[in-house]
Amino acid sequence: MRAPKIAALLGVLVSLAVAAPAMAEQEPLAAQKWSFSGIFGTFDRASAQRGFLVYQNVCSNCHSLKQGYYRNLEGIGLSEEQIKGFAAQKSTATIGDDGQPATRPATPSDHFVSPFPNENAARAGNNGALPPDLSVITKAREGGADYIFALMTGYADPPPDVKMGDGMNYNKAYLGHQIAMPRPLQDDGVDYTDGTKATTEQEARDVVTFLEYMSNPEMEQRKRTGVKVVLFLVLLTGVTYAVKRQVWSDVH
């Protein structure tokens, strides 16, 4: 009697497990250790701040981050003053008092200013390729943070039998191995002020932490709330079950 029932339950669970990860057929990604993984994970503030520096000095020359606000930087530990000062260095488009297009210094409530005014300008500046927006980039790629890390550290000289396209670069992690983006991270490519050694790997780790934060700025609040909600619900289930036992005690 039992077997079919248990099998049914198992079947449902198995079908759930296969449904989600069944899409990827790439080289296996090396799983990295991230500060933000797990149900108690939080963003390593120092790493995210260094990652912001990498984003600022390297990525932001071509990539937009248009869903993010400068005020989001509070979440990685920057102070209000720092954010105000930082935003003020950027100029954003507005309409002047004379009705003509003008610029003004950005404020913390502004979205991150994009490097190019539109898609055509971005393509024109990048050999015809469009640098994707980075706002939700770690969610928008199969493999998430691990994949972005692999991509950042996956640049290599092409094997002799591979014929590279014009202006393309060889990358082990990229599908098809030919990517338009030139290698962005170099050893000591960024000056870290906190004494961390700026290896390519370290830079990649930091920028992925920053981008993971920008993709999920709600994550810490979400997980904190989740722990409380689940604890409450487990308790409630227990109490309800006790009540059920009590109510049913005169039946059976």
């Binding site: 449904a19 989600a20 899409m23 149900i39 969610k139 199969e142 979400r222 997980k223 722990v227």
Partner: peptide, 12 residues
């Protein structure tokens, strides 16, 4: 919802 909100989702 709280710990694996993208489990059923598709990166694309």
């Amino acid at each position: 919802v709280f710990f694996a909100p993208d489990f059923f989702g598709n990166a694309d």
